[in-house]
């Protein structure tokens, strides 16, 4: 499969306090992002996600390593012309209206006036800002700024869209809308590479992820392969009569009045529990199979990196 982004041994450090020494932020990042996928770049705050994205978009220069975007080397204007970028918590010229901002930034791609007008109008409605294009950006809410940021990232109809924390600061409705928009971009055949520390959002839409910890990618691959499809355990909620005794394979997690929450790790144990519950007159309220989540994967990586 063709790659949209290929990063090898990417290194970056910044000057330390009072310009003494250097503080490494990226310590040899490797990434392979196939074309046409939604790719989540995950990691805790300070892991180096934004630094990586800034290198990809030409705002920072790496100390070492190689980067290829859409098959072209870093800094190639042809690659940049096919890239859309939404910075983290984007800042815009607040004296411009939304429409003026899109016209200005679109003209940097060499779009003519007519194309710009058509595209701006379509994008404003695509991001839910229809009718708000004439409003000055200083009057936009944080959510609206995030939306206009996304609109400007799509002005050139890019093949690769790089988004830095696109869901950050948005309410649940806004997050849902951005998620739908990202899915729509994928449906159009675009590659979406986004950083996030909101794991639920990433798990909901990503085809593949990489987890960055302290400047190194510790896990990378398709989400299915990383999480697996097997059920890890089942959580069973019962309304049980007084004196109900669960089988030894079932762990009681919580008990509130007649409501009992239990966990079993094997399918046979689940059957035993359900049979016993029925036999003792308990009503089965819920049986929830639990798979390995991105959060589990993420949390599992943290101690390894924090260990000396």
């Amino acid at each position: 499969m063709e790659t949209a982004i290929a990063v090898r041994d990417l290194r970056k450090s910044f000057k330390g306090h009072l310009s003494i020494g250097r503080h490494p932020v990226l310590r040899g990042v490797d990434l392979t992002v196939p074309r046409g996928v939604i790719y989540g770049f995950l990691g805790p705050n300070g892991a180096g996600k934004t630094t990586t994205l800034k290198i990809l978009t030409g705002l920072l220069f790496p100390d070492g390593g190689t980067v290829s975007l859409l098959g072209r080397p870093l800094g190639d204007p042809q690659a940049r012309a096919r890239l859309g970028f939404l910075p983290e918590a984007p800042y815009f010229y607040d004296y411009l209206t939304g429409q003026e901002l899109l016209s200005f930034l679109g003209s940097l791609f060499g779009l003519d006036r007519r194309t710009l007008e058509e595209r701006s109008g379509a994008l404003l409605s695509a991001v839910g800002l229809e009718g708000k294009g004439g409003l000055q950006l200083r009057k936009y809410s944080k959510g609206m700024l995030q939306r206009i940021g996304l609109a400007q990232a799509l002005l050139n109809d890019p093949d690769l869209v790089v988004l830095d924390e696109p869901m950050s600061g948005l309410d649940p409705v806004g997050r849902r809308e951005i998620r739908d928009l990202i899915l729509d971009l994928k449906a159009q055949g675009k590659t979406v590479f986004f950083s996030s520390h909101i794991l639920a959002d990433a798990e909901a839409i990503c085809d593949a992820v990489a987890i960055l910890m302290a400047g190194k990618v510790v896990r990378e691959g398709p989400l299915d392969a990383l999480l697996g499809s097997e059920v890890r355990f089942w959580d069973v909620t019962l309304r049980a009569p007084e004196g109900f005794s669960p089988p030894p394979e079932a762990a009681v997690l919580a008990r509130q009045g007649s409501q009992v929450l239990l966990r079993v790790e094997r399918e046979e144990a689940l059957q035993v529990l359900l049979d016993r519950a029925r036999a003792q007159g308990a009503s089965i309220r819920a049986v929830a199979p639990q798979k390995f989540s991105l959060e589990d994967l993420f949390l599992a990586e943290i101690p390894k990196e924090e260990a000396p």
């Binding site: 978009t57 030409g58 705002l59 204007p77 042809q78 940049r80 012309a81 890239l83 970028f85 910075p87 984007p90 800042y91 815009f92 010229y93 930034l105 940097l108 791609f109 940021g149 400007q152 050139n156």
Partner: peptide, 14 residues
């Protein structure tokens, strides 16, 4: 400082 430059230099502008 205001980071408005990010939106310009991430485009094919030298």
């Amino acid at each position: 400082e205001k980071k408005t430059i990010y939106n310009i230099l991430s485009k094919p502008v030298s």
